[in-house]
Amino acid sequence: MGFINVKKKEVQIKIVYYGPGRGGKTTNLDYINKKYKQRIKTEMVSIKTHGDRTLFFDFLPVDIGKIHGFDIKIQLYTVPGQVKYNATRKLVLKGVDGIVFVADLQKERRDSNLKSLEQMKENLLSHNKDAFKIPLVLQYNKIDLQNQGIPLLTVEEMEQDLNQELRVPYFVGSALAGDNVVETLKKIISMTLISFRKELQ
């Protein structure tokens, strides 16, 4: 749940990038951090293993400006994708306000996407949150691989697998190239802020 401090006129929102391992969650944040480094002005915190995998989480705080006099402070997190770190994923989801689910377009990653989404729903339930109610955006990542002749799932297949019931906005993108990375983030922040609208007016 988000925090609003009427006295200090501040709003704090927590966005979590969730998805299967090696799907591109950290790369999304890396791209945002590098591209807007001078505007973000704070450091991205990463805790990684020797193999450059996210061990605990990545964290990037972003102050995007004011709405109706309220400072909007966004906290971006990723979860570790490796299967063994579910306890950590659960912890990072605590107090989440909006989720970007980063799915992998590669055919061979189809099962991982499905399992990760199911686990995300369960983990949200453990915090009394519902994947059908929380602001959520899907990102179908790694579209750049289509030029390399790597078998990818079609958007229709991804929608069928992941979004048939959820019916949330989705973006086809490439975190590595930066395609639709910003659009995904803007969408999830926008969806989250709409939920705050009454409080801000």
Binding site: I4, N5, V6, E10, V11, I67, K186, I189, I194, E199
Partner: peptide, 29 residues
């Protein structure tokens, strides 16, 4: 980054709203 949560802070349960727009937020973004 701290500063928001505190004695004056109020928690807001956020729910997905599909059919609304928030032009001020979009403009800021």
């Amino acid at each position: 980054v701290g500063g928001v949560a505190g004695p004056d802070a109020k928690e807001v349960v956020l729910a997905r709203v599909d059919d609304e727009e928030f032009p001020e937020a979009d403009s800021l973004l």
